[in-house]
Amino acid sequence: MIELEGIEKTYTRGEVVTRVLQGLSFEVEAGEYVAIMGASGTGKSTLMNILGCLDKPTAGHYRLDGTDMVQLEDEALSELRNHKIGFVFQQFHLLQRTTARKNVLLPLIYAEDYPENAEEMAEAALEMVGLHDRIDYRPNQLSGGQQQRVAIARALITNPAVLLADEPTGNLDRRSGAEVMAIFQQLHADGRTVILVTHDLELAEHAERVIVLEDGQIAEDRPVAKPRDAEHELATLTSVQEVDE
């Protein structure tokens, strides 16, 4: 479903030329759960932006569901992002001035047709991430973990082909992070394609495949023999916490 072929990305700032991605090629099948791992500054986010059609590679080809996005104009890329891609960011990126419901609805505004049952769709999406009782809360009335779950609901509402998450637990405590990881695993179990970007091996091993980036190249691309079980970790954390209390 995702095919990358010789992807390069070079930033030129004045005299300084930074070759961030140096010829990446890999494929991701529909329904896979892949972690892209690497130290800070190795180009994970850069790759993520390309996968999310937010940015074009300097060279190479990237086919998403058969379309080569490198050929597309800005408008078509916007449509592609709207249909096919769900983003989850480290900083949540919620609109502060409005409710969880309205935040989740946001991608539908930019869809071809605004669905008649948009409100119910938003409620269903929020329910799926366990926020059925927080539908009309504003972001500042929610914890970090809850905010990130609103963001996940927002990413899912257009029923995208791929869910892209860049360090989604980076701003969260362990427990909230585990909750988010559990949701991703559930989504994967439901057949959704998930790509998780992280610098943390422990997090990466929740996926069933890990691609390790080093110096702008793929150092390793291996399956995870026994992925970690976020649900189980969450249960452990909860019991520890209960003991603490």
Binding site: D74, E75, H93
Partner: peptide, 14 residues
């Protein structure tokens, strides 16, 4: 950042 987010969610320049 809000504008960037909207663009990521599928907003066109227009």
């Amino acid at each position: 950042p809000e504008i960037g987010l909207r663009r990521a969610l599928g907003a066109k320049r227009g």
